[in-house]
Structures are given as structure tokens and as C-alpha cells.
Design a binder for these strands. Sequence first.
DNA 1: ATATGCCTTGACCGATTGGTCAGCTTTGCA
DNA 2: TGCAAAGCTGACCAATCGGTCAAGGCATAT
Lengths: 242, 242
Amino acid sequence: MTVTSDVDHSLTAADSLARTDSGDTAPTTMREPQDQGEGEATARRQRNEQAILEAAEEVFARYGYRGASVQAIAEAAGLPKSNVLYYVGSKRRLYVALLERMMARWNAMLDDISVEDDPAKVLEAFIRSKMALTRAHPQGSRLFAAEVLGGAPFLQEYLRGDLRDWVQARARVFEQWAERGLMDAVDPVWLIFLIWSATQHYADFEPQVLGITGREALSDHDHQDITDFLCQLILKGCGIRR
Amino acid sequence: MTVTSDVDHSLTAADSLARTDSGDTAPTTMREPQDQGEGEATARRQRNEQAILEAAEEVFARYGYRGASVQAIAEAAGLPKSNVLYYVGSKRRLYVALLERMMARWNAMLDDISVEDDPAKVLEAFIRSKMALTRAHPQGSRLFAAEVLGGAPFLQEYLRGDLRDWVQARARVFEQWAERGLMDAVDPVWLIFLIWSATQHYADFEPQVLGITGREALSDHDHQDITDFLCQLILKGCGIRR
DNA sequence: ATATGCCTTGACCGATTGGTCAGCTTTGCA
DNA sequence: TGCAAAGCTGACCAATCGGTCAAGGCATAT
């Protein structure tokens, strides 16, 4: 790419999530895999980047932003601390990149609906896709939980913006369904929160779930079982026939 | 120093929660308010202790155990760091005391049930008491969430012990209710997790809830509203007539 | 008043924090 | 083969971490 106007950086975009800080000089740029020059170096770069992201997601999720140390991330990634910082620029930047990746996954799940759709199908698809997301990215789910638990300093804008709009739009459809007698007249926002919390639970509170059920891990069958349970109970609970 | 046996400390019991560590010498115990000598000093002691516990619960909940600093707790409590450590002995001890306080609150909520009880009443009481706990102690709820999110290093024993037994006992009753046709044959453990997650959500994810609903805080009316919603949906969802 | 202990706190400790940098090795293109 | 650029990392920095300690402040019982 020819002379990008702005020094690109970080694994994806710059910290667009964070409010603009006076500081944050770091001009280091990390270009794309260099056209098609499939060098040995670029391969290792990709390997290292992925190792860092994976390690960082785990450490940030477990200890929170403040509690996580670059040293711990570096050790988990099997790299020297200096090398990690060479790749990611700063701890803050790495954290924001991870949040953005997780919100992108989340957004990919948020398709629109209309009043004409079948409530049973829509709600069931909603529950199943949310469960699948939690299953596929438990560390990301925990990272999100830790961020919100800490007051959502980086995500507040997103919560009050895009996500809020999406929820309100869905809520209106739910209300119209209720008017048409397709479901009970429950508060649609509380319903959405119920689904989010129930699905999120199996990632965020995994130690509790495992401790109480006496399992070492949740199998695919367990997950399928839980998903079916949630679909059944919630649909029936808000009076949706299927 | 006059060789006092050992300077007592700690707010309540010692770290009984934590696995016995080779280290952790401090055997201190802080005696009760000293007979009835209601001195001015003991009053301030109580004031300080409460300020510390309150501040610590907030800071630990927000930043997690590692992310929280004694300095931050001290500032929130309006005391010098040295004074905080004089009262609590160590960061670890303070954290454990808070966890124990929260688990005691939790246990106070866990009454036993029998097959003869009315499923509707029991389940509704369960949901309402859990919501009330979350409402009364949101910081404690978040502290618990942060602990579990971090792998529950201090609570694992409790989760695999007392709490597990309690859940299993309830689960058996639920199954018997199902056999008698008093409710659907849903998996009782998943049902308990659903209730826990749905109620916990309004403390742990408060910033998300507020951001999306556009509120500054949840009013008592909101809480009543949510509680009623959960009771209605969950009872109906698992086929309990009321 | 004098003595007795708890209470309070600034100074200080070694360890760890996020981050920088100089200097080295490796890579890819000519 | 040569060479510029990129990758890599040990040494180092100021700041902060949890915790200790000694010196003094203070209330109380004699």
C-alpha cells in the first residue's frame, strides 16, 4: 500500500474506541503482509501476533486491564516482554485491539429483523447464535465481562450508541409482535438482557458451573443441552408458540 | 515492644477461605469492642473499619484482586495506606474477609426446601431473594463476579463443596416436582444457573444496562419491574402454574 | 501526673510495573 | 554478495506495588 496517510498501527485499527488522548505518540507502523511476498519473516510475524492476541485475551480476561501485566502476557505468548511491546505498541493499545475484535464478532451476530418474521425462529436464532459466540470465544466473552465490570471505561460509547440503537429497534419489533398476539407483552429490553445474561453465564462463571456440576469442562453435548433448555424455557416463558 | 503475644488484626476471622499457605504468618485476631467500654476510640475504630470494608469492596470489585491497590483503597476510605494495613493486616486478608462476608450473605439466603412445598412459591421466593441480595449489595455481587471471572482461586473449595451440595439437593426436589407433574422436566441445574445469571446481571453489567436503557440508575420501581418479569417468565417457562 | 498500651503515619524496603532504547541479528531484494 | 530495513531483546528507567517499622499522638486507669 502506497504511503498510507496516517501511520497505521496495531493489529487492526488504532484505538478508535478510546477517547483521543493527548499522549499516545507511538508512530511505529506495522504494514500488511507486504503484498504477496510470502516471506519467512511475515509468517513468523503472523504466528507471533496471533500468540500475543491469544495470550493477552486470556490474561486480560482473568486479571482485568489493571491487573494484567505485559510480562504475564509475554510469558503466556512465549516471547520476551520487549518483543510484545514491539508488536503492540503499548498495553493500552493491545487491550483496545482485543475489545474491538470482540465487538466486531458481536456485531457480526447482530442481524436485523422485521415484524413480518416469525418470532419463534428469530428468538431461537438469537439465543443459539449468542450461545455459539460464547462457546467459540469464551475468553473474549470474559474480556468483555471484565471491561463492563470495571465500569466499561472503553466501551461506554459503544453501549450508549450502536448497541443501544440495536436493542431499541429489536424492542419495537417485540412490542409489535405482542400487539399482534404472537407473544406475551413482556418488556422486550428485560427479555434481551435475560438472554444475554443466561448465555454469557457459561463463559463468565465457568469455574462456578464446573465446580457445581463436578465436570472438568463442558462438552459439546452439554452446550447443546443448555442451548435447547434456554430456547425451550424462554420461548415458552414469553408465550411464543413454535 | 513489650512482646505482646501477637498484634491482633483482621476484621473478622482469619483467611479460612484460603488454602493454608506456607507463608501468611500473622495469626492476629482482633478482639470485640472490648467489653462494654464504649470509648471514643472504639467508635472511631468501627467507623474506620467500615470505611475500609466499603472502599475495598468497591475497588476490588472494579479492578479485581491484582488490579486493586491498597493505595487506591486507602484513598477511597480517606485514610493513609499505613493505617489501612494496620487494620487489615494485608491485602490478601482484606480480600478474603470481604469474600467471606459476601458468602455469609449468600448462605443466609439459602433456605432448605422439601418436595411438599409449593413449586410456585419456592421458585418465586428464590428469584425474589436473589434479586434482593443483588440489589442490596451490588458491590459484593461484583466482587464475587470478579473472583469467579479470575478463576475463583479463593472460592473453588466453596463452589465444589457447600454450594454444590445445596444445588444438588434443590435439583433433586425439582426433579420430584417434575415427576409429580408440578412442573416441566427441565434440567434443574441449568434452571438454577438461569436464575443466578439473570439476577446477577443487573449488578455485574450495570454499565451496560444503564447505557442501553439510557438511565442514570435503576430505580426501586425498575427493580420491582424486572423482578416481576423474571418471576413471570421463568415460572411460565418451566410450566409452573400459580 | 504518670504509665500503659492502642492508634496513626511518614519514611523506607525490595520487587514489579509499563515503557524506552541502543545495538544486535535476520530477512529480502539488488 | 552487499546492504538497507525490519525484527529482536537485554539493560535500564521512573513510578508504583505490598508491606515493615520506629517514632510519636492519644485516651484511659491508676
